[in-house]
Nucleic acid binder design. Structure first.
Lengths: 177, 177, 177, 177
DNA sequence: TATGAATGAGAATTCATTCAT
DNA sequence: AATGAATGAATTCTCATTCAT
């Protein structure tokens, strides 16, 4: 039960309606509203990180390819499910400071993979040594995030996958030695 | 739990208190809460755009300096007023789709300046011709946005101005020919 | 906050769990939640009354011993089962006026035994003739009730049985000729 | 505003309706539902205790008169306001364990006055030395409580004040040396 | 008989908005 | 123009009850 259909809109009543269940039913599966949103994010980011890690060893010596894999998996995952992306880009933002902190924690593994990729790139001499790594990480994540958000707000009319290469292009150039 | 707040974000009562007026007084100047937030954004982005335009003519032939001016003014404006930045980075996100559309409209002049700067850079041969300009615009805006959001969520502990140069560095390199 | 519970007191799910059956099973045996609580009280008070009546004939001429038997059986029954006492002292109070009326009806046989004991005591000249018998009944029941409630709210840490004699002591003195 | 009319019935909506205000208005004066009930009890018990203390010095040497004053003031206060008594005897019982603890704390000053009166009575030799003072306290409070509850559940048809003397009579005899 | 997933009515609480002063 | 008390719609969440299996 639950899970396949959409979860647009903030109120539990709408989430429940779109899932085709009664309001109370939601609470059989989730502790509270926060838990719903957090759970969706956790699973999504967990999936993305897991998929990246599978390819990661193979790409140990190729930071540019590793970055490409990160972008690719991120866009493919969110790009294949508009409802999912709506939750991560719209509903999860409609939350208070405490929740934002929890979101930050869940995002950490993904952010760490980005950080590691930057570190390796610098070690290998592929990325510039002079870049501020924290800034670089934010550039990468900010670009991905802005791209997905723009896609959602546009109504998901085009294909997010088509943006993998051009996005990698600007990112890599921003870092390249 | 979450939706213990009827709407999200800052209650009118807090906005009014911080402005030193009574709740009702707010409605003499603004149509409704949305109008307040939108107005704050409109003024802020208007200011930023105006300041950039003042310097813009002078930098017509120097796209890298123009980009530096954009980043500088954006960070200086938001970095000098934590409340303001909290509204733009937190409260304005806690809104529905219709509101997001309005926000997009208000941001347009700022986005257009970024777009124009990219165009000029490419014309002048300073930025690569092969970059996807829409993507480039999102990279720039996404990086700025992510940087300011991270700053706010960190509690605004460090100085946003100190990030102007390193942010410009990665952005320019992402675009450079 | 408070009314986070739709009704009050023990949820059916807990009652069912403690009985080792599923929620739905409860409804094969009871009409509704009220019926459960009422039934528990009916059985409990029925038991107490029955036990008292067994000893009652034998004590017909000894109103003080009869009162002792009442207190003893009341405290022994509730004191031997914390869950039971919690239902009678806590959950059964968390009900509306209509339910209170039903509770009153169920308590009547017990109250009548107290009344009868007072009457006999007066007849025999053991209790003062000048006492208001209705008040005396309430003193006895009020004292028992308050004692059991205090015991439950304390966490049932001490032994209710140890209070039989001292409680009888004050009650008997309140009535004695 | 608020305060004069009745507060029957558990739900805030009914409390508000009976106070002639909207649901939300209640929250301008009380933190939450618990706060309403607790506040009523605090004020009531505070009043009762205050009134008793006024007479208390004068009755230092007369424990029986002191007890009479306690009963009198308790019954006069609750007996003069059915709504008030309904809150203390019905609604305040419909609460969870945590709330019961708070209620216990608020009742403490009243219980302490009872305890002190017993102590003095024993010192003066007016009350028996052999009574268990904790039990005696519960007898007194249990009798008062049961009497007021019975009065409320009867529909407050008779006059609670008329019970002051007969109640004192049984109580005093329960304690007398 | 027994189950327990699903239901949905009902309760507390927040806060944008209004309006008498 | 300004106030802020009062409103009530909207929202989350609980739990008694039902019913298909």
């Amino acid at each position: 039960m639950m899970g396949e259909s959409g979860y647009h809109g903030a109120p539990i009543s709408r989430i429940a309606r779109e899932a085709g269940v009664a309001d109370g039913t939601v609470y059989l599966y989730f502790k509270n509203k926060e838990d719903i949103l957090i759970s969706i994010l956790r699973v999504t980011i967990g999936d993305i990180v897991e998929q990246i890690l599978i390819q990661y060893k193979r790409l140990e010596d190729k930071p540019i390819d590793a970055l490409h894999a990160i972008v690719s998996i991120y866009f493919r995952t969110l790009g294949s499910d508009t409802n999912l992306a709506t939750v991560t880009q719209v509903h999860l933002r409609q939350t208070d400071a405490e929740m934002r902190r929890k979101i930050g924690e869940i995002m950490r593994p993904f952010q760490q993979i980005i950080a590691k990729t930057i570190d390796r790139g610098v070690e290998k001499g592929v990325f510039r040594e002079t870049i501020d790594r924290r800034i670089a990480r934010r550039m990468i994540f900010g670009t991905l995030d802005e791209t997905v958000t723009a896609w959602i707000l546009s109504g998901a009319k085009y294909d997010l996958i088509s943006l993998i290469d051009p996005v990698c292009d600007v990112l890599v150039n921003g870092l390249k030695a």
